[in-house]
Design a protein around this nucleic acid. Structure first.
Length: 490
DNA sequence: CGTATTTGACCAGCGC
DNA sequence: GCGCTGGTCAAATACG
């Protein structure tokens, strides 16, 4: 507590407006601490409000002593330091006002903090959104990569669109061996084909990888590098996928069936265990098309032709090749959808069996014992005794087609499946994330429309096969004329 | 004559 | 290492 007295009055007391300076009563010897009160009331020692105007209404003296005496104002204020103000001497109203001001200030501060908190939340939300977007983008990229692989496989099978019939001998599943691509005989055989069929050790850049590269040309170089790393990691798997084969068994008197593609025979060999020779064909619909197929009659039933397709077409397929392409596409997709463990194979085979031709007696055989996976579609309309005679080797599954199970999920439309098979590089599921082929095919199996479309396609195919025994190329020259006789008779 | 087919040779992988 | 086998090549041949 310090006692202050009026130190100076620089204004006469005649008016309402005045200003007063106070000096500390305890430091009179030193420089007085001055503070302009301004237009304020003073407080007496007993905190009683003093109205200077009333207290010293007639003051005329200007000496501070007189002023102090005459006014008699010895103000007691609570001062804790030199910096203190006269606030300590505020009235309850002023204290309340001060508190209100503080409260207001605090409210303002709280409001500011709330605003800042809100901004921080927005930033966090934006960061989360960005993270989610990046995460989804990454997932899409990964799915895109899987789709590219899958589409390449489907394209492989579209090749199969040329569904011929060819007998796959039991020993054929172990073939592979030494096929290699030497210097290509035709100049049209570009590096695509050579690389795609490089079995010599090499894994080169396959056609699907080239397509992949093209399709991802829009990606930034960093993402392309990531994709390339993923590709490198899957190279071994893709090499296996490239070797995937599809065999189609069908009864036919002709040595080859019309499948919508043009083929050139480049070799014929006697295969072990089969008196009928095996013919080798190469697709000639486009320069450098790497697709090849083998045609051989079944040793036990020479009315059955087995056609084995391998490779991917590098050209659009004619409409005539589409029906069977879709059929075999699903087969290969199943075949290559996962690791070929026996359990997986069995599962896939079962699903595939229900998918393909559920209304017929057709059989599907998936072989995982070969150096490359092979799936055989039996379109002979009756159970094949040869398959039943095959020794069970644990990796060979013969599954009779059975009626489709009750629908469990929303099935895709047949158009979607066909489009996926035939235009695999341009059509993909829009809103359905790629789960597993098993799921997809499971859904397909429940679609009666797909079943009907597939049955119609194969029926049409069979009619075409029986009615038109040889294809005609652009020169009007019949294909397979020589092999017709030799394969069937020898 | 151009194109497709035939066919023996060649090569590589695999098993013994 | 050798033989077997599958796959391919390429010169010869056939065909329109």
């Amino acid at each position: 507590m310090q006692s202050y007295s009026i130190d100076h009055m620089n204004h006469c007391f005649t008016g309402v407006d005045f200003s007063v300076s106070l000096c500390s009563g305890e430091n009179e010897s030193s420089e007085p601490k001055r503070r302009v009160i301004g237009e304020m009331d003073f407080f007496s020692e007993d905190k009683k409000r003093v109205n200077l105007d009333h207290k010293v209404p007639s003051l005329s003296a200007t000496k501070k002593e007189d002023l102090a005496i005459n006014t008699g104002l010895h103000l007691t204020v609570n001062v804790s330091s030199e910096q203190s103000t006269l606030d300590d001497g505020l009235s309850p109203d002023e204290e309340e006002q001060e508190r209100n001001m503080e409260m207001t200030a605090m409210r303002v501060e709280i409001g500011r903090l709330n605003e800042e908190n809100k901004n921080l939340r927005n930033m966090l939300s934006q960061a989360n959104g960005a993270y989610e977007a990046l995460h989804m983008h990454l997932i899409r990229l990964m799915q895109q990569r899987d789709l590219n692989k899958l589409n390449s496989l489907n394209h492989d099978i579209s090749t199969v669109a040329d569904v011929t019939e060819m007998v796959e001998e039991p020993s054929q599943s172990s073939t592979e061996g030494g096929s290699r691509e030497r210097s290509s005989s035709s100049p049209a055989n570009s590096k695509n084909e050579m690389v795609l069929f490089d079995r010599e050790g090499g894994r080169g850049i396959g056609r699907e990888e080239i397509i992949d590269r093209e399709s991802n040309a829009w990606l930034p170089s960093r993402e392309q590098a990531k994709l390339q790393q993923s590709k490198d990691a899957d190279q071994a798997h893709e090499a296996t996928m490239r070797k995937a084969r599809v065999s189609v068994r069908a009864r036919s008197d002709a040595s080859i069936i019309t499948d919508g593609c043009q083929w050139r025979k480049y070799g014929q060999k006697m295969a072990k265990g089969n008196p009928c020779p095996r013919a080798y064909y190469r697709c000639t619909m486009a320069a450098g098309c790497p697709v090849r197929k083998q045609v051989q009659r079944c040793a036990d039933d020479r009315t059955i032709l087995v056609t084995t397709y391998e490779g991917s077409h590098n050209h659009p397929l004619p409409p005539a090749a589409m029906a069977m392409a879709s059929t075999t596409s699903a087969a290969v997709s199943m075949l290559l959808s996962g690791p070929m463990s026996s359990s997986d194979t069995l599962m896939n085979s079962s699903v595939f069996a229900r998918t393909m031709l559920p209304s017929t007696s057709t059989m599907a055989t998936i072989s995982a014992s070969a150096p490359f996976p092979t799936i055989t579609l039996d379109l002979t309309q009756n159970p094949n005794p040869i398959q039943q005679q095959r020794p069970p080797n644990g990796s060979h599954f013969s599954l009779p087609f059975s009626p489709p199970p009750p629908p469990t999920t929303t099935p895709p439309t047949p158009t979607a499946l066909f489009g996926h098979a035939l235009y695999g590089h341009s059509v993909k599921p829009e809103n359905s994330p790629v789960t597993s082929l098993a799921d997809t095919v499971s859904a397909i199996t429940a679609d009666p429309n797909f079943t009907a479309a597939l049955a119609a396609a194969i029926s049409s195919f069979m009619e075409n096969k029986n009615g038109n025994k040889s294809s005609v190329n652009g020169n009007g020259r019949s294909h397979h004329t020589c092999s017709d006789n030799k394969i069937g008779s020898s």
